[in-house]
Computed example of a mutant assay.
Amino acid sequence: MVNKIKRIGVMTSGGDSPGMNAAIRAVVRSCAYYNVECVGFYRGFQGMVEGDYMEMDARSVRNIISRGGTILKSARSKDFLTPQGRKKAANSLSKAKVDAMILIGGDGTFRGGKIFSEEHGFPVIGVPGTIDNDIFGTHYTIGYDTALNTVVEAIDKIRDTASSHNRLFFVEVMGRDAGFIALNSGIGAGAEEILIPEEDLGLDRLLASLERSRKSGKMSSIVVVSEGDKIGKNVFELAEYVTKNLPDYDSKVTVLGHIQRGGSPSCFDRVLASRLCVKAVELLLDGQKNVMVGFVNNQIESCSLVSALKEKHDINRDLLRISDILST
């Protein structure tokens, strides 16, 4: 390895996701293994701007692998959006003698890292941590698997009530711009319909599907709705429309909200975070920069931050076909 890096910083930014602590742990312990100092910046880019950091060693991350959230906290930073704020962040990194940064987050985090690197020639590596799974260059992001399991468990419980009272439940899950959580959890929980931003099924098709289900003997159904679905203004308006046009259904709405972000990460997310972050440290020590590490075909690979931001991670269209078949 070309080890010109003596001190690495790590931060978490954007929405928290289960497994971020496992990622922090992997960065810190990889640094310790390779005899590189490590510091953790609090509250993402805002901590960089303010120079708010802590020295971290192998013992400082003990017992955090199973914890949800992030011990380094996360926050939005209006200061970092300005050239002046980014200049202040660069000065803070210089004073802290940090040679490179590992950024754990989503596309907003990577976009900020890319701009910062271009302006100040500072090496950064991105690690995808978001429950939405909407980052190009990786098949899975840290936190996605745990969020899926949380959603499926919740829907299983909702179905018990739906069956007991012959009700139609609309269950809204996270995914403002991407339907990965809705599509996969919907299939996993046996939902009758799945509504996602990428596929505008239309109100007529939804009504026709629910009517077919009713005529086939189903009086309780689950419709999983991604929060970014375009059919209605919101899930409540959608439920009201269906109730008006299909009065035989007793429609209810459940918004799962932020419970999808919390909880102890799954084994998959812990292992994924560990693999990605060990590789991130090794790439920096090997002289690479401005790339994102990803999980592709069970291997850890890297792509440029430009590609991660420019390209789109498409949903698996075959899952839509499978959903239609199984909802019969």
Rank of each mutant, 00 (worst) to 15 (best):
F236Y: 14
V296T: 12
G262C: 06
Q299H: 13
H258I: 05
E240G: 09
I300Q: 11
Q260G: 09
K252D: 00
G294P: 05
R261H: 00
S226R: 07
D229M: 13
C277H: 05
S274F: 08
L238K: 13
E227N: 07
G257S: 11
D269Y: 09
S264H: 00
G294A: 02
I259G: 02
S274G: 10
D250H: 11
P247G: 10
Q260M: 10
S307L: 09
H258W: 10
N290G: 08
G294K: 04
N297S: 11
L305N: 10
R275Q: 15
D269L: 04
A239E: 13
N297R: 12
V306H: 07
K289A: 15
G228H: 11
A273C: 04
E301R: 15
Y241Q: 07
S251R: 01
A273T: 03
F236D: 12
L283F: 03
K312F: 08
S307G: 00
G262R: 05
V293E: 05
K233W: 01
A273H: 07
G262L: 02
S302H: 15
F268H: 11
V235E: 01
V293P: 07
E301L: 14
E301T: 15
S266D: 04
I300M: 11
Q299S: 14
D250A: 10
G294Q: 01
D229I: 00
A280G: 05
D269S: 00
V293S: 09
D229W: 01
V296W: 04
N234V: 12
L256P: 05
Q260T: 07
E282P: 01
N245Y: 06
K310F: 11
K312P: 00
G228K: 11
V306T: 13
L305K: 06
K310Q: 14
F268Q: 06
S304Y: 01
A273L: 06
K244V: 08
K310T: 15
N245I: 00
L305V: 11
K289Q: 14
E227R: 05
V293Q: 04
S304F: 03
T254A: 13
V235T: 08
G257C: 04
D286I: 01
K289T: 08
K279M: 14
V255D: 03
K244T: 14
S251Y: 00
D229V: 03
S251Q: 03
F295C: 04
V278T: 15
V271T: 07
S264D: 06
G287V: 11
F236L: 07
G294I: 05
G228L: 09
N290F: 02
T254I: 12
C303D: 04
L284G: 10
I300W: 09
S251G: 01
R275S: 12
C303G: 05
L285T: 12
S251D: 03
E301N: 14
V291P: 03
K233L: 11
K310M: 13
Q288S: 10
I231E: 13
S266M: 04
E240D: 14
L238W: 03
L238R: 15
L309K: 06
L305H: 09
V278C: 12
F236I: 12
